[in-house]
Design a protein around this nucleic acid. Sequence first.
DNA 1: CAGATATCGTTCGCATACGAACGATCTTCG
DNA 2: CGAAGATCGTTCGTATGCGAACGATATCTG
Lengths: 175, 175
Amino acid sequence: MFGNRGRDAGGYRRRRVGRPEGNGGLKTAGDGDEEPVGRDGYVLDEQVGFLLRQAQQRHAVLFAECFGGDLTPTQWAVLAKLAEIGECSQNLLGRYTAMDVATIKGVVQRLDARHLVLRRHDPDDRRQLLISLSAEGRSVYTARLADARRASEATLAPLGERERAILLRCLRTLR
Amino acid sequence: MFGNRGRDAGGYRRRRVGRPEGNGGLKTAGDGDEEPVGRDGYVLDEQVGFLLRQAQQRHAVLFAECFGGDLTPTQWAVLAKLAEIGECSQNLLGRYTAMDVATIKGVVQRLDARHLVLRRHDPDDRRQLLISLSAEGRSVYTARLADARRASEATLAPLGERERAILLRCLRTLR
DNA sequence: CAGATATCGTTCGCATACGAACGATCTTCG
DNA sequence: CGAAGATCGTTCGTATGCGAACGATATCTG
């Protein structure tokens, strides 16, 4: 299904982020070592942060493919969390979905513009803004659940059962 | 060293992205199941994409701590890659550092504003913009190498030797 | 050589992502 | 009650991150 993994589909080369294959004739500065160490033992391609960023990029592409473009991963996260826990203050919602107060504000704003969420002030605490799924938001959530599963599945596709479990456990530990 | 992991240091609560502990009295909509499945078997907190995003957030915090605020992960990636491969076209540099053409442009621009990189036109191919480390950029790279190592180390700290190796291998596979 | 095609860098628009500062409101404690 | 401290939402500035469109240039093909 995701056979060629969406990269370099044929004779032409799309403008996307992808590793240049091989070491296209580039001389690695600082020669002399036989080891696969590039410089000073620090190789960017082996650093967790760099790999994490790329893994997330890959996931973002697959996610967009599965969802056909509308609904970003963060927007979906908000919908899914609201479906899980029901009405919730914007602040708490941000913590549940791992978003900064400024970030969650923008995401909710865009979802509200599409009438997928409802916003109302908490009568008991006038500081709080309570967010919940609208009827349309709930139906969108239900309709897109299959896409979300496909996105996760597609991302983990290159891994076996055991590797998937270990990866998820490690990521949860790092979190 | 990073004992409390920078979260909720004491009596006050900083404004940061963090999981709310426990399930603070929230009723999970859709009850009846004993299983740890929240709704329809889809639990946001178990999805790769969500975990990847949070792992990267965590890394970003640790990276910023190790680097004292200046130099973002992407900026460091550019410096490190340039140190590895030497002068390079902006486009290729972007591919090596997994950045979009528009993104690498901004990063290089900011590094250039700080005189850490040099830019010159390729005389043989007037489309290309060749990027390289300036003298100052190289010394910054050398000086910060220890910080970069600490950032990677701090991120992987909660994992054992075997887990680290597996995680890195899995991430590379997903990439 | 000339047209088709590909590549490179730039720009624009949009969507995260977060720190910092701010005012409004709630809670706590004297 | 009243001041101090904490929390909530908003706004601003900065930095990624990517798609799309554009013009300039290089390469390929007939």
